[in-house]
Every structure is written in C-alpha cells, then in structure tokens.
Write a protein that binds this DNA or RNA. Sequence first.
DNA 1: TATTGTTATACTCTATAACTATA
DNA 2: TATAGTTATAGAGTATAACAATA
Lengths: 145, 145
Amino acid sequence: MNAPVRIRAFERSLPMALMRARESVMARFRPILAEHDLTEQQWRVLRALDAADGPLSVGDLAAQTYLLGPSLARMLASMEQRELLERRTGADARRAEITISDEGRRVVGQVSPESEAAYEQVERRLEPGELDELHRLLDKIGGFE
Amino acid sequence: MNAPVRIRAFERSLPMALMRARESVMARFRPILAEHDLTEQQWRVLRALDAADGPLSVGDLAAQTYLLGPSLARMLASMEQRELLERRTGADARRAEITISDEGRRVVGQVSPESEAAYEQVERRLEPGELDELHRLLDKIGGFE
DNA sequence: TATTGTTATACTCTATAACTATA
DNA sequence: TATAGTTATAGAGTATAACAATA
C-alpha cells in the first residue's frame, strides 16, 4: 500500500509564496505607476531601456522583460507614440534599435524616487543582510547563479 | 549639490527578482496545467478549495488566491460548468458555499504528482535548508511573519 | 531557408463602477 | 444602510499562428 501522493500544503507552495511576496511589493508600487499612466509591463520596458548601455532590439527587450513578442510589439508602438522611446533601424534592417527618449528618462526620474521609498518600506521588514540573502536565493531559483 | 537619485540596478530590483524566480518555476509548471485545460488562476482556486477544511465563500477564495471578485465570479461559473466545484447557498443567503467536487479532486490528483516533480527540479537548485530559508524570507516580505 | 518583427485572433485577467439580493 | 456577490465595460496581457521583410 502506498501512501497517497500528498500535495504540499497550499502555504508551502513556492509559486504562491513568490506571488504573495511580489503582490505585497507591487501593491505599494502600482499606485505610483498608475499616477504616471504606466502599466507594470511598460515600466519593465522603460527600466530595461534606461539600464541599457546602448539600443536594444525587440528580442533583447522581450528576453529582459519576460514579455512575448506580440505583446511587446503593441506596447512599443504605444510607448513610441507617447514619445517614451525612440526606434531606428540598424545595419541589419530586420533589427529595430530601441532607445529610451529624454521624455522617457524624465518619467524614470520622476518615478524612481517614489519607487525607492516604496521598496524601502518593504525591505525594512527584513533584518540587515536578509535582503542580500533573499536576492541570492531568488537568483539561484531564477537560474542566474 | 545633491547626487542624482540613482535607481538601483535593474538586476537588483526585488519585484523583478521575484518575477524571474516565479517565471522560472511557472515555465515548468504551465505546460502541465495546459494539458489539463487549467489556467494558473484556476489552479490556484482548485488548490485553495482542495486545501480547505470546509466550504469557502467567494470572498474567502478571493483573499486566498489574490483574485478580484469579478474575475473570480466568472471563473467560478465556468469551473462550475466543468463540474470542478459545487456551490450551495448557506444560512446567510448572500454567501455562497463553494466546495471542490469529486471531479475537481480527481484533477488535483492528476496534476499534483506532475507538479511535485516540476517543483523538485527547481528546488534541487538550492542547498538543503535554503528552501526553508527562502520561504521564511518570502513570508516576511509577504507580511506573513 | 532562417531570423526579426508585426498582424490577426481568441481568450483570459484586471480594474472600476453599477447593480441585485440579502441582512 | 451595509455586505456578498454578479454583471457591465473597457483595457491590457497571453499565446499561437500566419505573415512580411530582410539576411
């Protein structure tokens, strides 16, 4: 007789724990983004462009932001209309070269201090050193070891 | 002269790290759910019902699964049609009493072993004890200390 | 032929407000 | 009046396939 496969307790589910933690962070963060008419995903794109050294292709962006091509294509179109970013065609004409615009940088500059404050509130829940440890473990899970 | 507010590196963003980790877990998990025609959210509902001692109200479910009422109402209707769950009206006729059905339990029973295997692959990336530590830190962030 | 990106399409979830029924 | 839940509506992301342009 085998013991029945016992599903782990709901509370011990790693995806749920990750989601709860993320939800608790994002709950503080979303209102800030909403004030600037940005979705979470648009913010990811903006951050990635802002952090990049040079232009990124659509594919680069998709990989860095975990967005799918079609979603990204539409978002880029609307963000380009809002002049948050600029796109050029590179030497390889298939490849788009996307960079953040001055306006985009301005928005990042406005949102960043508010977002820092929100993050700090969350991080204050941890003892010194625990944040580093959390990042280390998350990176291990995420395959960035 | 103030130093400019320096946004933390993209890689050190806690929400991004949480998302990457979750994505890496879910990437293995979603195909399993897809085979059983379940969305991530429906699975959360099913898990919550399966783990519950008795019937849950729509509000209980919303809180446990981090879904909004309207999303949940529609999902419950379709899951009821698929006979994954049952609903009754309680003593307080405003309150629905939702329980998992035999069919729902059967689905949970099918998905669970596969999902356990997927989780274990992820958890193998961690040293012994690190998973507990990760859960502890995530709960602290999530406000479940 | 393979790669890069867009368009088409259908579905699902998010979010807010308005509404119904019950308490 | 307040609470529980549903319906309405608009918007946005997900996912797959088909397609165009370029290499």
